[in-house]
């Protein structure tokens, strides 16, 4: 097995809510609450979940774009949280991020050349004399013309802009790229082009991806392993075949069954699990299993006891789910209430 590149242990990210006359912290938004996983060199691990599950916050906390409240982040054997700001800035050469909205994440007043040059200069990747050549090479790598480098972002379409975002991330020869909903804003025909590009770049530059997305179709296509999050916690983790073909957690099952499939034959046959209610607020998350308020299988035990991630006998190695009743649901001895 490839070596561990990123190791996240018990990561917590609480955002304080200030209130009262003295502006004291009256409560916390527990956006990420004790998340543990590893990413091996060369693989793509995806984090999926709905709005507010903490998937983006996890990505930002790893890069220390927001300072995590607790836990450890080890990258290539080094504790990232122990670095000071200057060391961290240097370190970001190895960890890059691509954002969702290519309209908001590129400075509209800079030409593409300036955008890329800035990255090259800060991380001092190549000597000044070679920068122009490097920029031309980067543009071609992401499928743009070298002659387009002197244009401004508004002169590009959404898909092309996302290619610029990828070029910027690639410019410093990173080891890990965190892609935060990187293809979500694109139309399907353009999305497919960018996904293919990202897969090709991964092969060519032996990149490791942490791919954050709500789109399970894209995730199945791009990932080796998948992490499913709900309200700040991991509910299930496993290789993609386990997650998509043999999901164990009731939330993962509901999530997968909720996605409409472009095939009316399947649509009419399939049994859709429709969850009741909304995701509760992360300010006062439910005690016990955080999913118990919507879970068709929940019992009193789920309301008090927090389930740990575990692998039951019928599950593949490395496939874990955080539910008290995985075995019973699998055996059919624990029935759904709705």
């Amino acid at each position: 097995m490839a070596k561990e590149l990123l190791k996240v242990t018990d990561l917590k990210q609480y955002f304080p809510i200030k209130g009262g006359m003295l502006g004291r912290t009256v409560n916390n938004v527990q956006a990420v609450d004790g998340v543990t996983f590893t990413v091996h060199e060369g693989e793509t691990v995806s984090i999926v979940g709905e709005s507010g599950c903490g998937k983006s916050t996890t990505g930002r906390a790893i890069l220390r774009l927001d300072e995590p409240t607790g836990g450890q982040v080890e990258f290539d054997g080094e504790d990232l949280l122990a670095l000071n700001n200057r060391q961290m800035r240097k370190k970001r050469k190895d960890l890059q991020i691509i954002f969702q909205d290519p309209y908001a994440s590129i400075n509209p007043r800079q030409t593409v050349r300036q955008v890329l040059e800035e990255a090259l200069e800060i991380q001092n990747v190549v000597p000044k004399a070679e920068r122009a050549a490097k920029i031309a090479e980067l543009m071609e790598t992401v499928g743009l013309g070298a002659h387009q480098a002197d244009r401004f972002p508004h002169e590009f379409s959404g898909g092309q802009r996302q290619r610029i975002g990828i070029a910027r991330a690639l410019s410093v020869d990173p080891k890990l790229i965190i892609a935060d909903e990187a293809v979500s804003a694109l139309d399907v025909s353009i999305q497919a082009q960018v996904i293919n590009l990202m897969k090709k770049l991964q092969r060519d530059f032996s990149l490791t991806y942490l791919f954050i997305s709500h789109d399970l179709g894209v995730v199945r296509h791009i990932s080796d392993r998948v992490i499913v999050m709900y309200l700040g916690k991991i509910v299930e983790i496993g290789d993609k075949t386990s997650i998509f073909d043999n999901p164990q957690h009731p939330y993962t099952k509901a999530l997968l069954s909720a996605i409409p499939v472009p095939d009316p034959d399947i649509e009419t046959k399939k049994e859709r699990i429709i969850l009741q209610g909304d995701v509760p607020s992360p300010i006062n998350p439910p005690a016990g299993c955080r999913f118990h308020t919507r879970c068709p299988f929940a019992t009193d035990r789920c309301k008090t006891e927090v389930p740990e991630l575990r692998t039951e006998e019928h599950m593949k190695e490395g496939h874990q789910g955080a539910c008290h009743y995985i075995k019973e649901i699998q055996a059919g001895t624990h029935e759904a209430k709705y």
Partner: peptide, 25 residues
């Protein structure tokens, strides 16, 4: 046809195959 082919699906595994794309924009 191009739209349907370029859509990655959660219920179908393409393995290492590339998505078929509609070229250009």
């Amino acid at each position: 046809v191009g739209l349907l082919n370029s859509l990655p699906r959660h219920d179908i595994d393409l393995g290492d195959e590339e998505l078929t794309v509609i070229k250009g924009s």
